[in-house]
């Protein structure tokens, strides 16, 4: 109807105004959507807590796998969350405790310092990439940077196990190799996700801070030495 009128008459727009006003279609449309969303809420409320937690954990675990196999997928970017970064950051900071650094006089990285370096560092890197004109959103970038700490956290676990054996030159060289490999892995994984958001002539400017960030975390892991 409307299309016929438009094609036949040049002033069809004027008549259309009255037609659209007299049919209260929009009111009818909004009414059914209300209950349906409420139904969804009820369904998530009804489910056991275990399922809710497991679903979120599964989502986090899926992203861990994406970091370990950094193919250029947008899974980390599409639905970001900060649970994984929080988990990794707390694990890293807790595992860095209990070293000789905790004795009174020597200032090794404390829990708060590790925490602040990771979060403040990733916020600064994100701001840097936004200021350089990146197309990625703030929390997407935080999510990627946080998840890509995972190889370094694994390296710290390995280092602590090696340190149980002793602190000789052999143990140090093994730790050096492990930390270097995981540092490379972290940098590679994060650049695989982040590099596409930037123009080609600015990629190096975005990647360099990421490199520095993981380098510092790697240094903290490598120089960690346990207490007596």
């Amino acid at each position: 109807m409307a299309s016929d009128e438009e094609t036949s008459r040049p002033f069809a727009g004027l008549s259309n105004v009255s037609i659209s006003e007299e049919i209260p279609v929009e009111g009818d449309i909004t009414v059914p959507t209300g209950p349906s969303t409420r139904d969804d809420e009820f369904s998530t409320l009804d489910e056991p807590v275990k399922e809710t937690v497991l679903r979120d954990l599964r989502a986090v675990g899926k992203k861990f796998i994406h970091v370990m196999y950094p193919k250029r997928s947008s899974a980390l970017l599409r639905d970001w969350d900060l649970w994984g970064p929080l988990l990794l950051c707390v694990t890293l900071a807790l595992l860095l405790q209990g070293g000789a650094a905790d004795s009174d006089d020597q200032g090794g990285p404390q829990f708060a310092e590790v925490f602040v370096i990771i979060w403040f560092g990733s916020i600064v890197i994100t701001l840097n990439s936004k200021l350089l004109g990146g197309t990625i959103s703030f929390f997407q970038s935080l999510c990627v940077l946080g998840y890509c700490i995972m190889p370094l956290t694994l390296a710290l676990v390995v280092c602590r196990i090696i340190l149980l054996g002793g602190t000789g030159i052999v143990s140090f060289s093994v730790r050096l190799a492990v930390v270097t490999a995981s540092f490379g892995w972290s940098t590679f994984a994060s650049t695989a996700f982040l590099a596409d958001s930037q123009l080609s002539n600015r990629k190096a400017l975005v990647i360099y801070p990421v490199f520095l960030f993981y380098f510092v975390i790697g240094w903290m892991i490598l120089t960690f030495s346990p207490g007596n």
Binding site: Q106, G107, G108, F224, S225
Partner: peptide, 8 residues
Amino acid sequence: FKYTPEFR
């Protein structure tokens, strides 16, 4: 000597 990192 026991090496300890000086984060300070």
